[in-house]
Write a protein that binds this DNA or RNA. Structure first.
Length: 220
DNA sequence: GCGACAG
DNA sequence: ATCTTGTCGC
């Protein structure tokens, strides 16, 4: 069963990740991608509440079509490797508020590039049964050679002998991004969509807009 | 014991 | 993530 309780202990969460990881599917996208959604979270009242934002963009122009938000009380502490238990509940609720259908989702964090193969992007993808790409700004696990300095350069991210993601230079001479599969998409498609969505800046447009919106919403 | 550690 | 202003470089 994919759906489960979220109010569990860190040790129970780790055990659960082991079971859920086996359900993640790496497969080509099905059908055309017309819309791409970006999500991001921020904290309010000194981490007492969490706000999640989901921004729906047109896949062709990457223009924003709609955005929604969800505010909840924080129910789980930040623990490296257990990020989804802290952010996924609010993030999932926000995505479900979107009025239109979404074809692809970008999460701010790792997908398969996770110690137990179940990063935030995988967890959200399984729960919603949607194609999800993990777009992280820094490394959680695995090693890699430095990708070239030019936009488009990439390097394999491997962990325990497996390729779990790609380190991608989305902008020349700017810190690279850690891309990995969340669910129902391949690593190559993930990299291509990420590059396609970066309009001259480091972060893909849906993610960048989600970050802007969540920061703004927090101050209102 | 020591260093690493998504957001 | 969050606390925070201006500043250096492409």
């Amino acid at each position: 069963m994919i759906h489960h309780r979220w109010d569990i202990s860190p040790s129970e969460a780790i055990a659960l990740q082991g079971r859920l990881a086996a359900l993640v599917r790496v497969e080509p996208l099905v059908g055309e991608v017309h819309t791409v959604v970006g999500t991001d979270c921020a904290f309010m009242d000194g981490r007492k509440r969490i706000i999640a934002v989901a921004v729906l963009c047109d896949a062709k122009s990457m223009e924003v079509l709609t955005s929604v938000r969800e505010i909840r009380r924080c129910g789980f502490p930040y623990v490296s490797g257990l990020l989804s238990f802290r952010e996924a509940p609010a993030m999932i609720a926000a995505v479900r508020k979107l009025p239109r259908r979404l074809d692809l989702l970008m999460c701010d964090g790792q997908g398969l590039a996770h110690p137990r193969g179940l990063g935030l992007a995988c967890h959200v993808g399984l729960w919603l049964d949607l194609p999800v790409i993990g777009v992280a700004k820094s490394r959680l696990c695995g090693q890699h050679r430095g990708p070239g300095a030019r936009r488009g350069c990439r390097a394999q991210l491997r962990h325990n002998g497996n390729v779990v993601g790609a380190v991608v230079r989305t902008r020349t001479n700017v810190k690279s991004l850690y891309i990995s599969v969340g669910h129902r998409v391949t690593l190559n498609e993930s990299v291509r969509w990420t590059l396609k969505a970066c309009r001259g800046v480091r972060l893909p447009e849906p993610s960048r807009r989600a970050h802007q919106y969540v920061s703004r919403a927090k101050t209102e």
